[in-house]
Design a protein around this nucleic acid. Sequence first.
RNA 1: GUGGCCUUAGCUCAAUGGUAGAGCACUGGAUUGUGGCUCCAGCGGUUGCGGGUUCGACCCCCGUAGGCCACCCCA
Length: 431
Amino acid sequence: MPTFRAPRGTRDLLPLERAAFIRLERIGAELANRYGYRPIETPLFEQVGVFERGVGAVTDIVEKELFRLAPRTEDGETWALRPEPTAGIVRAYVQHGMQTLPQPVKLTMTGPMFRYDRPQAGRYREFWQFDIEAIGDPGPAIDAEVIELATRFYREAGVVDPEINLNSIGDAACRPAYIAELAEFYRGQIDRLPALERDRLERSPLRLLDSKDAVMVELNATAPAITDRLCDACAEHFAGVRAHLDALGVGYRLDPHLVRGLDYYTRTAFEIYPRGVAGQQSALGGGGRYDGLVELLGGKPTPGIGFGLGLDRILLALEAQGTPPVSEPGYAAVVVGADPAGTADRLKIATMLRAAGLVARAELGQRKLGKQLESAAKERAHFALIVGDELRDGQVQLKDLEAGTQKLVAVDDLVRELERAQASHHHGSGR
RNA sequence: GUGGCCUUAGCUCAAUGGUAGAGCACUGGAUUGUGGCUCCAGCGGUUGCGGGUUCGACCCCCGUAGGCCACCCCA
């Protein structure tokens, strides 16, 4: 048994899984760049106030899932690991006076987030998110663009047919009245409410809307819908978002019961699920508009919208739909030889190949040639270069491990020979 | 945070309360400069951990840790 292991809810990304993550990170970085989002990196931890004010003090994320770090006596400050990216990015926007830049300021970040949750498949205490934020544009066109970017990420990552769930949750002008009406509605049914929901009714009536309890689902069918209670400005904004999505040909499903778990959202809210999956740990991403957040964190009143997308969840979805994981990169050539004293020669040849940009490995051990070739074949190396007596004439045996053929090649011609083989090989396999 | 199921070699899994095993993987040999197959051998375990019951515990009981499932909630 190992003496130490990865902390609960965390895991090591072994090479195969790490490669899959890198692929997603590249898709995200390239996509964000194409849309004009600039990369940013904020600290993994912030003052707790950033999250308490930014995310909301009464949210589950802050109340029970925040990774708080013990205060240190020298500064007395309380820190917490970031549970989501938006609050930190907005904090940076305010701190660095980004309101003086042309608006909107479009930023992207990919990295680990931390929530002290009870782990389950697809739910970790350390998980990775790709995130974009557009700060300073009141929309609604930017809302549609952000959602369209999200759908494009899934498409390029290979997720089949993700489903966008869309709603508008109003703003300070219309939401309070709606919440009051909703609470009134539930109080009229108080004897039918499960105990858990009665508790939440006083603290966060909106949350009852997306309950999965059978009684609540039935009750919610007749509950007042926010989309019927939006003020004129919010209704007009929401109509604009839908019109732009329609114009872009982005499909979505209206879900008047969709509410987000973070306080800062206003108006547009959306979540993405794999099609037909209502499972609990399956949300692929979500986001929305946060027109009050910049001000909450000490900036001038500034609108914003963004979304975060779970890399772990995407990998899970790809696996569930049967998409094969990324394959291990193979060696273009493995340099082998029977002479125990020949490691320097083998290493020199491998170095020459690497300098030319080829993926190569040299046998540095004392194994017999048969074992060396066995390893090379198992690694799916394309070629083995057998270094031996021929080297006196500046030549090595170039053995094609897939075709089983081999020929003498001058060391000076190796790079050209391997590059040519690689090119035609890729042609042949339709790449 | 609540309830439930699970935990044996690196991986996937066996083993009436009575000597802990197999396949895969890894290393070596058969094969002194020619591979994936085959054959042989080796390496690898305080049966998650800590207690208890018993002449004797992988097996039964309690606790604990971790994983998973459903909640809660979200990515």
